[in-house]
């Protein structure tokens, strides 16, 4: 199972959260549900950022944050 940043998952791709890179915003991301093995689906992905369905919740995040989230498909 290869790990990759969320930014390179294509639209419609389903994966699981593996880790969040340690940054200032990491605690907030984890609180919002980006914890290990949380199921995730990429709904939309463009230059502005990524919209994901995380465990049934739709979240929009900018590319910078998305690149800190490692997932595996």
């Amino acid at each position: 199972m290869a790990m990759m940043p969320l930014t390179i998952v294509t639209e419609g791709g389903e994966c699981k959260v593996r880790s969040v890179r340690k940054t200032k915003t990491a605690p907030r991301l984890r609180e919002m549900g980006f914890v290990d093995t949380a199921p995730l689906k990429v709904l939309s992905c463009n230059s502005a950022g990524v919209i994901v369905d995380l465990n049934g919740v739709r979240l929009a995040l900018c590319r910078e944050l998305a690149s800190q989230i490692m997932v595996s498909c």
């Binding site: 915003t25 919002m32 979240l59 929009a60």
Partner: peptide, 10 residues
Amino acid sequence: TSPFIMELPP
């Protein structure tokens, strides 16, 4: 600028 994350309600 700080990064952006926001919930999108139905």
